[in-house]
Amino acid sequence: MRWPTPGPLVQDGRVSGVEVAEVAAQLRVAGCVFAEEEARLLIDAAAETGGDLNGLVEERVSGTPLEHLLGWAEFRGLRVAVGPGVFVPRQRTVFLVEEALALAGGAGPAPVVVDLCCGSGALGLALATALIAEGRPVELAAADIEPAAVAYAQRNLDPLGAAVFQGDLFAPLPGHLRGRIDILLANTPYVPSDHIAGMPPEARDHEPRSALDGGADGLDVFRRVAADASEWLAPGGHLLVESSPDQAIVATAILAAHGLAARVAESEEHYATAVVGTRP
């Protein structure tokens, strides 16, 4: 089925005579679980931009992430700009931000926050936005190794006056942050290398391998972050990293070996597991 290029208006779920149900049927055949919701979003996107609805649907059916087609991902109530070649923030990772927000209560009136392996900068954006809403100024920085991610993170974080750096883990961060970070968010890749092939194609084929592949046991990058975290954290500062439930015990042992007080946090609501390391 082909649809005409839509006009600028969306009314009652129709764009130029195209029913949401018609688009959803094509998406459902391709395996999209939330077909109706995705159909509405694609129709709205085409209408708002005057774009080609046919092309958007075909790309989605072929496995392109919905968020890359829309140009944004929803994360903790915010629209975060994303695009081709950029990791799409997962809804479960909201739990990492919630944990960080709770811990930031003890970080003084103006917390220093760093979003490492930042991707689009969604975690830093969500945490800083929440803290600012509480009337607390934030010193925020972010870093990622992927140029495309850095470009989108700059776009998302510039309104907050945050600095975004390109490079490997802590290497690009300015020296003045050493020993001052109150909250270190590090959504490191944690999929074991031999599990990548079994991931959904929208992740496997469209997101950077560096954002997914955590090495043999999924903890290679985590180990590198844990090894240097104490040097960058302020006394009492916290490192928060997402992991799988099976990795959590090993991850806490790694944190403890590097002098951090470690614990596991879990959320049934978000189907998420986080490991938290605190500098004494």
Rank of each mutant, 00 (worst) to 15 (best):
residue 141 A to T: 07
residue 58 E to Y: 03
residue 147 P to R: 10
residue 53 L to Y: 07
residue 82 V to F: 00
residue 93 T to K: 01
residue 24 A to N: 09
residue 97 V to F: 04
residue 86 V to C: 13
residue 93 T to R: 00
residue 157 L to G: 10
residue 87 F to G: 07
residue 68 H to E: 00
residue 116 L to P: 11
residue 27 L to C: 03
residue 157 L to F: 07
residue 80 V to S: 03
residue 57 V to C: 01
residue 56 L to P: 08
residue 65 P to H: 03
residue 74 E to K: 01
residue 26 Q to L: 14
residue 151 A to C: 04
residue 156 N to L: 10
residue 118 C to R: 13
residue 110 A to N: 10
residue 104 A to R: 05
residue 150 V to C: 14
residue 33 V to D: 14
residue 157 L to A: 09
residue 167 G to S: 09
residue 127 L to K: 08
residue 25 A to G: 15
residue 66 L to V: 04
residue 129 T to Q: 11
residue 37 E to F: 02
residue 91 Q to N: 05
residue 128 A to G: 06
residue 154 Q to N: 13
residue 49 T to I: 07
residue 97 V to W: 04
residue 145 I to M: 07
residue 120 S to E: 13
residue 40 R to S: 11
residue 139 E to Y: 06
residue 26 Q to T: 07
residue 112 V to F: 13
residue 104 A to T: 00
residue 82 V to T: 02
residue 97 V to R: 03
residue 139 E to G: 06
residue 137 P to C: 06
residue 85 G to F: 06
residue 119 G to V: 08
residue 100 A to C: 10
residue 26 Q to R: 14
residue 162 A to H: 07
residue 145 I to T: 11
residue 125 L to N: 02
residue 165 F to Q: 07
residue 63 G to E: 10
residue 94 V to R: 13
residue 115 D to Q: 14
residue 55 G to W: 05
residue 123 L to F: 04
residue 74 E to M: 04
residue 124 G to Q: 09
residue 70 L to I: 01
residue 74 E to C: 00
residue 38 E to G: 03
residue 150 V to E: 13
residue 46 A to V: 09
residue 164 V to M: 06
residue 54 N to V: 02
residue 25 A to F: 09
residue 88 V to R: 09
residue 139 E to K: 08
residue 93 T to S: 14
residue 156 N to G: 12
residue 72 W to S: 00
residue 146 E to H: 09
residue 105 G to T: 11
residue 42 L to C: 15
residue 150 V to G: 13
residue 103 L to K: 11
residue 28 R to Y: 03
residue 124 G to K: 05
residue 101 L to A: 14
residue 67 E to M: 01
residue 68 H to C: 06
